[in-house]
């Protein structure tokens, strides 16, 4: 791991240098009152406040909607054409360690056997410059899933503010290249982040653990009353999936008119009633509790079993966003307390 230091005064110079390069800079800005990741025109727009953004940056690797190909009707002929190539090199700056850690899930699912070209091309060209979290809020629980507000998993470079300057830790080759490219703004010191880590972790109010016993028989998990409680409150709006840094399900639909259109890959959610419905009308997950169960077991049981990584990063967004107060932290807690 290569470590450097970045003074607080040098940070704007770094942002400006990235913006002036051929690389697209994506960072948190305020849009309609929400702090979200957007391509940046002027570095003054960037808001690196404490706390987390409303949405993670996943939409820059896995867009809300993207064409897989286009179709055009031309008399009796139909022409299919490949989509435009994705955006070029991108620096995503200001992601929290929880969001960066979420990439471990997307990386595995989108390459577990077949290569998802649409994701990979963006992923390869993206450098993730994460920013340690000094002030986790009451919904946060990253330490409950084995992560840390100053953890390096998933980031190429992690910046941690220590006594007015930033420690820059490059944990990948991409990160080392980044430090070399912008070498003139960094200095050679290596401040110690132990105290920053301790202080940030001490502010987390939800210790967990958030986990499902990998040995617990599925038939026992299925009958748990926690699903009824979460499912009866759930409105099926899908907001939890859209704000989640690891939710990766997508729908594929034709969007167009009588002349043609695009076959689009769109965000989807297992919380939606139609997610599993068959053409016959039969729906294997016919009620909301069964969908609540799928969401939690997918993250805490199925993906760990399949891909060796827990698919919840403790960012707390689903709990903060849910209009009905469904909270994966509480659901997982209920699951782990003994049943009546």
């Amino acid at each position: 791991m290569v470590k450097r230091q970045l003074s607080a005064e040098a940070l704007p110079r770094l942002l400006e240098a990235i913006r002036r390069s051929d690389t697209r800079l994506v960072a948190p800005v305020v849009e309609n009152g929400l702090r979200v990741f957007r391509p940046v025109e002027h570095v003054e727009e960037i808001v690196l406040d404490e706390g987390n953004t409303a949405w993670s940056f996943k939409e820059f690797l896995f867009p809300r909607t993207e064409p897989l190909f286009h179709y055009r009707f031309d008399g009796p002929r139909t022409e299919l054409t490949e989509p435009e190539p994705p955006e070029g090199d991108t620096v995503i700056l200001g992601a929290r360690p929880c969001d960066a850690a979420g990439l471990a899930v997307l990386d595995r699912v989108y390459a577990w056997d077949y290569d998802n070209r649409y994701y990979r091309e963006r992923r390869e060209r993206a450098t993730i410059i994460a920013l340690s979290c000094a002030a986790p809020d009451p919904a946060c629980f990253c330490t409950a899933v084995g992560l840390s507000p100053t953890g390096t998993r998933g980031s190429d470079v992690l910046l941690t503010k220590i006594n007015g300057a930033y420690l820059a830790e490059a944990s990948t080759e991409k990160g080392e290249r980044f430090l070399a490219t912008y070498g003139e703004v960094f200095t050679g010191q290596e401040p110690d982040k132990t105290e920053a880590t301790r202080a940030a972790e001490a502010r987390i109010q939800r210790p967990g653990p958030v986990a499902v016993d990998p040995e617990a028989p599925v038939e026992k998990l299925f009958g748990h009353p926690a699903w009824t409680d979460a499912g009866q409150r759930c409105l099926g709006c899908g907001a939890c999936a859209f704000v989640c840094p690891t939710c990766h399900c997508f729908d594929i639909v034709d969007e167009g008119d009588a002349r043609g259109g695009s076959r689009c890959k769109n965000w989807d959610s297992c919380g939606f009633a139609l997610f599993t419905v068959h053409t016959s009308g039969h729906n294997p997950r016919a009620d909301q509790p069964s969908r609540a169960r799928q969401r939690v077991l997918h993250k805490l049981r199925y993906i760990p079993e399949r891909f060796g990584v827990v698919a919840c990063v403790g960012c707390g967004r689903c709990a903060r966003t849910c209009p009905a107060g469904v909270d994966i932290y509480e659901t997982a807690g209920a699951l782990n307390s003994p049943m009546e």
Binding site: V109, Y110, W112, D113, Y114, N116, V218, H248, C249, F250, D251, I252, D268, C270, F275, T276, V277, H278, P284, Q294, H298, R301, Y302, I303, E305, R306
Partner: peptide
């Protein structure tokens, strides 16, 4: 039988347990 979209084990629709 399940609802399927991608065929590559990625879109999530045909998830059946793990």
């Amino acid at each position: 039988e399940r609802n399927m979209n991608c065929g590559f084990g990625q879109c999530g629709h045909c998830q059946y347990g793990s």
